[in-house]
Amino acid sequence: MTATPWFDRWFRRRAAAAVTSWRMEIQPPASTQVEEAEAEPVSESIWPILRQRLVPSDRPASPLEQARRDFCAAMRDLHGDAVQDLRLRAGYSPSLRELWHLRSALYQLIAFHLDQAEADRRLARVNRHFPTRAMGHATTSEHHAHSSLFL
């Protein structure tokens, strides 16, 4: 079966656009001894949550606390057992790296309960707590390897 001319033109335009596109990759925080030193035991990670409910603190929140807040805020209007489980897991994450690994579950829950566009929007706020790097565009040989699958 051969492709129709309009489909072939459309596909080639889409493939050419994909070759020149740039994207950002969200990366986990580096796994180093410094990070392990920053990781806090579960007993200490519970204390700020309890203290925050009892007495508001004037001290600035740590990067981990800020990331936890944004992570949980992304689920603010969602309900259910899976949401509650993820909220607890995020609240007790001992490091930013552990929280980074929960992002896909957060995205899935938001997309399921609301929609994909809202999941993208809310995850962008969470992703600002993690390092990023620019990904280069595909090379011409990569483009031909991918496009030959459909021709």
Rank of each mutant, 00 (worst) to 15 (best):
A39Y: 08
E40N: 01
E40Y: 00
E40L: 14
E40R: 10
E40G: 02
P41E: 11
P41M: 03
P41A: 13
P41S: 09
V42S: 04
V42I: 15
E44M: 15
E44K: 13
E44W: 05
E44H: 11
S45R: 15
S45Y: 10
I46C: 03
I46D: 01
I46E: 01
I46S: 04
W47F: 05
W47Q: 11
W47M: 12
W47V: 11
P48E: 08
P48S: 08
P48R: 10
P48Q: 12
P48V: 06
P48M: 08
I49G: 01
I49A: 05
I49Y: 09
I49H: 02
L50I: 12
L50Y: 09
L50K: 02
L50F: 11
L50R: 05
R51G: 07
R51I: 05
R51Y: 05
R51L: 12
R51H: 10
R51F: 06
Q52M: 10
Q52Y: 09
Q52T: 12
Q52R: 15
Q52V: 03
Q52K: 14
Q52P: 02
R53N: 11
R53H: 09
R53A: 14
R53G: 15
R53C: 10
L54I: 07
L54M: 07
V55I: 15
V55L: 09
V55P: 01
P56I: 13
P56D: 12
S57N: 13
D58H: 09
D58A: 14
D58L: 15
R59Q: 14
R59K: 14
P60N: 07
P60C: 06
P60F: 02
P60M: 10
A61D: 07
A61S: 13
A61Q: 11
S62H: 05
S62F: 08
S62G: 04
P63C: 07
P63A: 06
P63G: 07
P63K: 08
L64M: 02
L64C: 09
L64F: 03
L64N: 01
L64R: 02
E65M: 07
E65T: 12
Q66T: 03
Q66D: 04
Q66G: 01
Q66A: 09
Q66E: 09
Q66M: 13
Q66I: 02
A67G: 03
A67C: 10
A67Y: 00
A67F: 01
A67E: 00
R68L: 06
R68W: 06
D70T: 00
D70H: 12
D70S: 04
F71K: 07
F71P: 00
F71M: 04
F71L: 09
F71A: 01
F71Y: 04
F71H: 03
C72N: 14
C72A: 11
A73Q: 13
A73V: 05
A73I: 04
A74E: 02
A74M: 08
A74R: 00
A74S: 13
A74Y: 03
A74I: 06
A74K: 01
M75E: 03
M75T: 10
M75N: 03
M75A: 08
M75P: 00
M75Y: 02
M75F: 11
M75L: 15
R76P: 01
R76K: 06
R76Y: 06
R76D: 05
R76T: 04
D77A: 14
D77I: 09
D77G: 10
D77F: 12
D77Y: 12
L78A: 10
L78H: 01
L78W: 06
L78P: 00
H79T: 06
H79P: 00
H79C: 04
H79L: 09
H79Q: 12
H79S: 13
H79N: 07
